[in-house]
Design a binder for these strands. Structure first.
Lengths: 196, 196
DNA sequence: TCCACCCGTTCGGCTTGACGAACGGGCACC
DNA sequence: GGTGCCCGTTCGTCAAGCCGAACGGGTGGA
């Protein structure tokens, strides 16, 4: 996952780390939702003692328990087993892990590798210079990925936008105010949003 | 998940459904990886009896057990708790559900709306005419989305590729042979792959 | 002050997941 | 045919998750 648990490296994440991760994730989500431990336990249909122990890190819950918590919290399962996420990231054209094909004149740059369990919307953008397009924050946990195709643009968090040339890539939290402003005519871009 | 566990609907997925889902997912992934039950249990460090019972649907494993299996199988956690998935789709520049901004000269076309719980990799492609780049099938359930930025290209399933002009979009199964062939110099594209 | 309420933690019990060992079946090899 | 190996399943034991109940602490109202 994306968080990946990804590769088959057995040492990838110590089990003990897993449960503390879950413990903190549950508490974080619960407090973020403004729920008391008692109330969450009630909604999830589990004993509050169970939840208390989980949050204290004496864990290893069953999937059903964890699932019930995810449902009650209204968050994806993955949110509870995946670590917090990074911030703004820029990959300029020519930068990044590029792989070349020996078959053809073809190169591919991996810009963002699969955070798991995300909902993903894919947009094509056409814009021209003018007032910037401001976006109010989306749902918590949202990330936006922008690849500029043609033209020039300013994109990213409102307080620290990034200037992009064709081929440039930027990712930033979508759950904070952000903007997209074309700086040249015929500016096109691809935007991928993932709401966890 | 979109499966979602998403909303706080307690009845969202019967617990029994969850475990049969996990059961079939484990078996599917294991057989897909060409592993015997015994071998997988050994790699995951769990008793094969445990695994046997899990695959038979008498389950509710602990997260540590499930995590160990995910690691041993080299698949994201989510793969084990999410259900299986559509076909080729083309959206030409100017087609599709386009929304215009009143703030700025800006339009966004929704190309692909969030199938949930997918792993998503985002690539930028630079290619020139020559031999097409052929791809062997990826993992089952994979979908590729291509948006052409500049140039011209032929992309899609090997047996029915689609010619793309700048701004065009195509999505197709990534678990069948497919290709990407630049038809003009300086062809650039954005490719998003989602492996469930 | 007293009481009622809700918070989160702790404590026995009951249930159940995880384990190792034993079992039957299929296959290759001698 | 006999033997050895690995497959996947089943069984009995043990540990641990989950539960309800009881507990102490904090807060607001009568």
């Amino acid at each position: 996952m994306g968080t990946g648990n990804g590769p088959a490296d057995p040492a990838e994440r110590p089990a003990s780390g897993l449960i503390t991760l879950i413990a903190t994730a549950i508490r974080r989500e619960r407090e973020g939702a403004g729920l008391s431990l008692t109330e969450l336990a009630r909604r999830a249909g589990i004993a509050k003692s169970t939840l208390s122990q989980l949050e204290s890190g004496s864990g290893n819950p069953s999937v059903e328990t964890l699932w019930a918590l995810g449902v009650a919290l209204g968050v994806p399962f993955s949110r509870l087993v995946d670590p917090p996420r990074p911030r703004i990231r820029v990959v300029r054209r020519g930068e990044g892990p590029v792989t070349h094909s020996d078959q053809a004149d073809y190169s591919a740059a991996l810009l963002a590798a699969g955070a798991t369990h995300t909902r993903r919307d894919l947009y094509r953008i056409d814009a021209s210079p003018g007032r910037p397009r401001l976006s109010e924050p989306h749902l918590p946990g949202t990330t936006e990925h922008v690849v500029l195709c043609t033209g020039r643009a300013l994109a990213g968090p409102t307080e620290e936008p990034v200037e992009l040339d064709p081929g440039d890539y930027v990712a930033y939290p979508g759950d904070a105010p952000h903007l997209f402003e074309a700086l040249a005519p015929d500016t096109t871009a691809v935007i991928v949003t993932d709401h966890i």
